[in-house]
Write a protein that binds this DNA or RNA. Structure first.
Lengths: 198, 198
DNA sequence: TAGGAAATCTAGCGTTGCTAGGAACATGAA
DNA sequence: TTCATGTTCCTAGCAACGCTAGATTTCCTA
């Protein structure tokens, strides 16, 4: 076997992996779009397979099952959310970082309800403790960056978690129509006032 | 037809309605227990029917479908939550009402995770706006009673919603293991400090 | 006790997530 | 170019799901 042949073999394998990776993102994107269009219950393995023009077993060669696809969408969403945080914080004027990030959080939730649902109520295979994926730690780090400076003498991690929870509560309850729409614009200022008051 | 006969007929009908009501609570309780034991996905109509020792169509003579059963469990849970609020507020020492109710909320969520899930992420048939069921308004009224006095010059309704959202966020994120367990006891004091500080 | 209404069950439809087994394909050697 | 090989993919089908039509049994009234 010549060395030229082995190079060809490797290149072939790499191309296959590339194609597989492409198809994998194709699946994830399709699932996300379908969920955002008609809700997660209508994202069935059959419809997903038809959409990407492959048979069902192909999906199972990429993911362990339907749940794993949802998890993949959630992970993608978390990465996007982190980017949104970064941009909001960068664009904020000094002292307004919390407001910018909080508003970004709420905007993200209302703009991508299905994605939000995947991240916070559907994803079940994502580890969240010490061995959480990197994107997840990055997302929390963004929140930490804006909340920790306001912690004062309290534990900055706990303080960040409380801040996150408060915003998240607004987003979650608001998404399900459990908060009065006419008070929408009053809620965030109140929350920010509580957190930024000296 | 004698008047005595019509009385018997009415009594019979009332007995039937009573029995129907009994069976309905039997269904709801069974669903709740099964959900709390093995999670909501394992609460299938078939297993539920087997559990109450009736055939499946009987369930559909009581509820429009599986979703309506979940809604009924959620409604029962909201009523219980309201009672928990009432007791917590009554037992609290002056000035500690918010702390008592907030702690009760978190305890309720961790003690009845499936019920909590039914109320906040599964129930879809429950109206939440102006024409919400009475128990739901009562639950919010309890929260209003403890938060509104702290609103100051802010809208008391919006302030209550923010308070609710903050506690709810802690409960929701905590339930899914998204918050650090070792900071559990630090979070609520921080939150209460934010809301009760003058 | 007979007749009719009400309650209940049997059986089955369409859809779901998932998988076993075989067909079709690309690949590398002769 | 041709053939064996290994990979990729699809067809077909299983068990379980929510739900419902129609037969059957049970109960009440007269």
């Amino acid at each position: 076997m010549s060395s030229g042949a082995s190079i060809v073999i490797m290149a072939t394998q790499q191309r296959r992996e590339r194609e597989r990776a492409q198809r994998e993102t194709l699946i994830v994107n399709a699932a996300r779009e379908m969920a955002e269009a008609d809700g997660w219950p209508s994202v069935t393995v059959r419809k997903l397979a038809e959409r990407i023009e492959y048979s069902q077993p192909v999906l199972y060669s990429h993911f362990a099952g339907r749940g794993a696809i949802v998890d993949a969408v959630a992970l993608q969403g978390i990465a996007e959310l982190t980017e949104v945080f970064k941009k909001a914080r960068a664009a904020a004027e000094p002292g307004g970082e919390v407001a910018a990030v909080a508003q970004a959080y709420l905007d993200f939730a209302s703009a991508n309800p299905a994605l939000f649902e995947a991240i916070f109520t559907l994803a079940e295979g994502l580890p969240f403790g010490a061995d959480a994926p990197e994107v997840l730690k990055a997302a929390f780090a963004e929140l930490y960056a804006v909340f920790a400076p306001l912690a004062g003498d309290r534990d900055p991690d706990a303080f960040t978690e409380v801040g996150w929870a408060a915003i998240h509560g607004l987003a979650a309850l608001g998404r399900d129509g459990r908060l009065r729409p006419d008070l929408l614009e009053k809620r965030l200022p109140i929350l920010l006032d509580l957190f930024t008051r000296p």
